[in-house]
Design a binder for these strands. Structure first.
Lengths: 224, 224
DNA sequence: AAAATAGTGTCTGTCAGACAATATGAC
DNA sequence: GTCATATTGTCTGACAGACACTATTTT
């Protein structure tokens, strides 16, 4: 059958030690005045990853290269959009804290919201479920891929990286064991040679992302 | 934009110690005479998992309950179907060896093919890529979920389960360590009390699937 | 000096792989 | 008995978590 196809984005970043998600305040019905994931229709002749990258640029002014963008899942339950049959391909992006937050944004009402404030529901359409699926994907991807670096700028310290895990997993991690594990994992991070002093204390070495696509063995989040 | 939406199925099973995939010989253009994944259009008012379950029943006569069915990914590159803009939502199914293989099949040309014979390419549309993605998903899912049991009938021995891993991962596994790990993993398998003699040797205990949805810790396939 | 953060060394329990030994059937 | 497979037990090396300790800065 013929349907209308959209892409919706779960854009995650970490700002001020909090996991945040980019949401749009809807200006028109349906769900007027409610928060929703950014997204839009797939254009004629446009591939799905292209459409997601275009939306990402429009909403954040950010180059998709800077972070990580992957397909999440597709949602097409009849009635999920009251205007008709709309199927949406959701994408998940993990982004570093933006230097110019939401500059040049398409949608005027775009805002970074703390995840814990919107996790309880209240989003438009079926976006609560999509957001929940995106968070769970992000949490498990941190275990067996080096994607935590996507939340960090090009150069970062091990403490920065640890803060990403602690924020996304909502756990405390022993800094010393973490340091040993991360620097010992083949291809996870590479030293740049530089150092930086964040607040007080001994200067920390700077690292950049390594070439590995998978972590062997994975970092394990504690079983709940 | 308006597009045509289909579901395609990567149906995997293990028969005779070989990983096999259900393929359809195409009777009409495009790609006439070539092998393709089974699939079809999503019907009006039909949810995506419904459409996948319906196709599964039509192609195999099998109840989706018997195995495992999950969404794989969505493919929508313009030009992937020469007839127009067609976006397909691919589903992955892991199925036990069927008692009545492909009985009541919709498509006359449906056949179980050995994966290693079709892995090199030659499928219609972009189905080579979809199949590859499905295999990779299956391989990694065996690591951190108990889904290997989806390849087994309702009651199975630990040796049966080990054969699943050895077939899907193309490795040899020590039977004794595997036995200890599987029977020790919380909620992976439950003894039925029965025993069975497969060929020769000491009778093996029978097990059924346990309630666990995730394995903590995961079984690890050896790093290549 | 004290405080704070970065990074290293060491200990200990657990677990994975190797493989010996035992159990129970068919022949 | 021998053979084949299932299952248990034991050993050993590697690794995870706990945490003492050292290093380098600010105040």
């Amino acid at each position: 059958m013929t349907i209308n196809l959209t892409v919706d984005l779960v854009l995650l970043t970490i700002r001020g030690g909090e996991l945040q998600v980019l949401l749009i305040r809807r200006g028109i019905p349906p769900y007027q005045g409610m928060w929703a994931l950014p997204g839009g229709f797939v254009l004629d002749g446009e591939d799905l990853p292209e459409a997601a990258a275009r939306e990402l640029r429009e909403e954040t002014g950010l180059d998709p290269q800077a972070g990580h963008l992957e397909q999440l899942a597709t949602y097409g339950t009849p009635g999920r959009d009251p205007r008709g049959r709309v199927v949406t391909v959701a994408y998940l992006a993990l982004l570093p804290d933006l230097p110019a937050p939401v500059a040049g944004s398409d949608a005027a009402g775009a805002e970074w919201r703390r995840y814990d404030e919107v996790a309880d529901g209240g989003l438009a359409f079926d976006h609560d479920r999509i957001l929940r699926d995106g968070i769970e994907r992000a949490r498990s991807k941190l275990e067996y891929t080096p994607l935590a670096t996507a939340f960090c700028p090009a150069e970062f310290t091990i403490a920065d990286l640890r803060a990403v895990y602690e924020t996304v997993w909502q756990t405390r991690i022993d800094a010393r064991n973490f340091h040993r594990k991360v620097t010992g994992a083949e291809g996870f991070v590479e030293p740049t040679g530089g150092t930086v002093i964040r607040d007080r204390g001994r200067p920390a070495q700077l690292f950049r992302r390594g070439p590995a696509a998978l972590l062997h063995p994975p970092l394990m989040r504690p079983a709940e």
